[in-house]
Design a protein around this nucleic acid. Structure first.
Lengths: 341, 341
DNA sequence: ATGTACAGGGACAAAAAATGTCCCGATTAG
DNA sequence: CTAATCGGGACATTTTTTGTCCCTGTACAT
């Protein structure tokens, strides 16, 4: 059954959305009947005309009666409504989760995919697919896109495909090497995304954890300057969110540094910044690249992270209010929401 | 599960239609892969552009690969195709049945509703609802609509509702009283339809089974003449199909007449004509009203009949090729199709 | 090697559908 | 009886879909 819906969704991506909409309509009518279009539109936060179209359809199929006093459910409509009730919980779980996260975290656009990235590897793929779709949706010609590293973003790169709106787009790595495996580094992903979409990219060859003097020297390089200035004008940032300690370890922080991070209450990491549970910056990688101010200046910030192990990190990062779109999974969403109860 | 599908059919009839289209697309690609847009469009009797849009979507969701050699199913696409195969039967069974009937009977437009009118009374309602929808779809301002009697047509009348295109429409009974209960007579239904749609109607008060002389006299009446001439110019005919013997009995034919009918091989009845299995007229009610030639002259002939008991009659009537739209039910459709295998 | 037929994708005008908005006469509730 | 509210009509405007043609690249047969 669940499986059937999944398949249907492959064939009809907005199936659930529409179903949900109609279900809500029936529900509202049921509770307010008899009610007129305009009143219903107001109650449902929809517009008159759009409701009218839906109502006409449901009238055709006989779920809805229309009388001079307003519309009401037919017996069949009522029956269907009752039968749907239990199924809807299952069906719209994800959308509901997304909405709850949206309210809780104050992020305009939240998408929750099914599964738990910690347990099933294909969830990462799904996150990537959705990430790619969102990027394609938000991108505009000539945009500069700042890209970080990590498995989630790699998965996005993997699912990107060409589109007209990618014309003139430049993918710019948010950081130089950050001590990751090369296939997960920002440089690699920026170039991969460019290749997949047929657009261009820049590279930022700045080794990680440099001596301050060397860093100063490097920053004077015209090539580096160039990339940094691009980063300052990114209209879109696409990044993962990491667990602070896990990231630090992966980046070979020393025991002392780790202890320091822990002491400072670092919970999450994104584009080289470490945040505590309240969303405050408690540490940053001593290297150059995308700055927090650049991110705040960006119009669209796509955050991608899944798995319940990331729940705390996502919550922490969301506290620092500069993201527009969060793509996560069921596992993380449930963990975040239950933590707050 | 079956229940869930029914619910979807009620709630999302439009989406199911597009799902069907996509499924068919996958199917075609599977059989022809690798294939290009243009070739596929030809094979599927669709247009290039429209296929292109669909393909783009299926590509997005990853069911379809696109290479320079043409398109082919991805593994996932193939998996979905296989897994959905049995379910699609359920989901689209009716449409498929309709198409098979369309081919078999050579009727341009066939609609099959769910269920079997012989067993479940609500199927008649469904037939009526669909009939009303079709009438609404085909009607044009100022049309003359010839209407027969019977339960199916009564159900259509019951589900009609006003629409702008009913302006100036006249509903005319195809026959006078045909020895039915009054609420199923053509006169009653013509007036009911007019009332429901806000249009006008005429009555034909000619008692059934009249002596020839009396009939001649009546036919000279201006009122009767008037209605007969209207009938000759009907643009739309909407009628039921009956089982010949059952109808004859209901009309109080004598034993001798019944035997005669049976001898002549009468199988079906419609607007007072009796047809044999080959669709030839073998008898007609000795009364005035809509003539077979009038029906043949009409642009649109809506036939409505359901229940497996009507299968033979429908098949017989379809032989005499003057109908455009057949509305029937699953029970009848299955019976007709299995009879031919 | 090379020509040819067919692939996908770009582009864009034309057509069609969806949507926002306002009006009207009918109906109902108070 | 009146005021509010109903459904449905109308229509401009926006958005989406569709038809059509072209271009470049690739696969395959010669």
């Amino acid at each position: 059954m669940r499986r059937f819906i999944e398949m249907q969704q492959k064939l009809l991506p907005d199936l659930i959305e529409v179903m949900r909409g109609r279900y809500m309509l029936l529900r509202s009518v049921y509770h307010l009947q008899p009610i007129g279009r305009r009143a219903l539109a107001q109650a449902m936060q929809s517009t008159e005309r759009i409701l009218r179209a839906e109502v006409e359809l449901l009238k055709e199929t006989g779920l809805l009666h229309v009388t001079a006093a307003g519309m009401s459910l037919s017996e069949e409509g009522q029956r269907i409504l009752e039968e749907m009730e239990p199924l809807m919980g299952d069906l719209f779980g994800l959308t509901e989760l997304a909405e709850r996260l949206q309210h809780l975290l104050g992020i305009p656009h939240v998408i929750v995919v099914q599964g738990n990235a910690d347990h099933s590897p294909w969830v990462k793929e799904e996150l990537g697919r959705v990430g790619a779709r969102m990027l394609k949706q938000y991108i505009r010609e000539g945009d500069i896109v700042a890209v970080t590293g990590g498995t989630s973003i790699a998965s996005v790169a993997h699912h990107l495909s060409p589109a007209p709106s990618f014309r003139g787009v430049q993918f710019v790595p948010a950081r130089g090497g950050l001590g990751e495996r090369v296939e997960l580094q920002a440089n690699t992903l920026a170039s991969a995304m460019a290749a997949k979409t047929g657009s261009s990219y820049r590279l930022l060859h700045v080794p990680d954890r440099l001596h301050p003097e060397a860093l100063q020297t490097l920053m004077k390089e015209p090539q580096v300057q160039d990339v940094l200035s691009l980063l300052q004008h990114s209209r879109i940032v696409i990044h993962g969110i990491g667990d602070a300690l896990a990231m630090a370890k992966r980046r070979n922080y020393s025991e002392a540094e780790l202890a320091e991070l822990q002491e400072a209450g670092a919970v999450s990491e994104a584009f080289g910044y470490y945040f505590n549970a309240a969303g405050e910056t408690v540490h940053r990688m001593p290297t150059i690249g995308l700055q927090l101010e650049d991110v705040q200046r960006a119009e669209t910030v796509l955050s991608i992270a899944g798995g319940e192990s990331k729940a705390k990190a996502i919550l922490s990062f969301a506290r620092q209010s500069c993201q527009n779109v969060l793509i996560t999974d069921e596992g993380a969403a449930l963990a975040i929401l239950s933590e707050r109860l």
